[in-house]
Amino acid sequence: MINPEQRQLVHKYLLIELAVKSLQIDYLKVEQFKMNKVFAPIMDSLLKDLRHEYFELKKQLGQQRIRLVGWKTIDEYFSDVQIATSGDDVVLRYANQALKTKVEQLIINHIDGKMKMKS
């Protein structure tokens, strides 16, 4: 069983994992842009920050003996995420569109934060 704080950590971990995966896929397309010298460094910096956060969250979850076991797509609308804890396994159901929206917002917030730091 996981408590609400652990569930929030798991949720953030999942969002960051999805953001990293999406950006890695998109990065291949950015390399083909005419202005890739502008966008590639932005993507590199964003990926570096998200990977750092990802590994920190993974470490925190590991210390609490919580790990992601796997994703299972239920249908086009929902996916289940299986989480292993020291007590037993937990299955969390997520709406795919909600995950996509949250990942987009996470990336936008990271970009906005970087822009504010530079100005």
Rank of each mutant, 00 (worst) to 15 (best):
M1W: 03
M1H: 08
I2V: 06
I2W: 01
P4M: 02
E5A: 05
E5S: 04
Q6W: 02
R7A: 04
Q8A: 09
L9M: 06
V10W: 00
H11R: 08
K12A: 04
K12W: 01
L14I: 03
I16Y: 00
E17P: 01
A19K: 02
A19G: 05
K21W: 07
S22F: 07
S22Y: 08
S22R: 14
S22P: 02
L23S: 07
Y27P: 05
Y27A: 12
L28V: 13
K29T: 12
V30P: 07
F33L: 10
F33K: 08
F33W: 09
N36F: 13
N36T: 11
V38F: 12
P41Q: 06
S45L: 12
L46V: 11
K48S: 14
H52R: 15
H52E: 15
Y54D: 03
L57Q: 00
L57H: 00
L61S: 01
I66F: 03
R67S: 11
I74W: 03
D75V: 08
D75W: 05
E76A: 11
E76I: 06
E76G: 12
Y77T: 14
F78M: 12
S79H: 04
S79A: 12
Q82Y: 10
A84F: 06
T85Y: 01
G87K: 11
D88L: 08
D88W: 08
D89Y: 08
D89G: 04
D89P: 03
V91E: 09
L92S: 04
Y94I: 03
A95M: 09
N96A: 08
Q97G: 10
Q97I: 12
L99F: 06
L99P: 03
K102H: 13
L106D: 06
I107N: 07
I108E: 14
I108D: 12
I108G: 09
N109I: 05
N109Y: 07
N109A: 15
H110G: 09
H110D: 14
I111D: 07
G113T: 10
G113K: 08
M115A: 15
M115K: 13
K116G: 07
M117L: 14
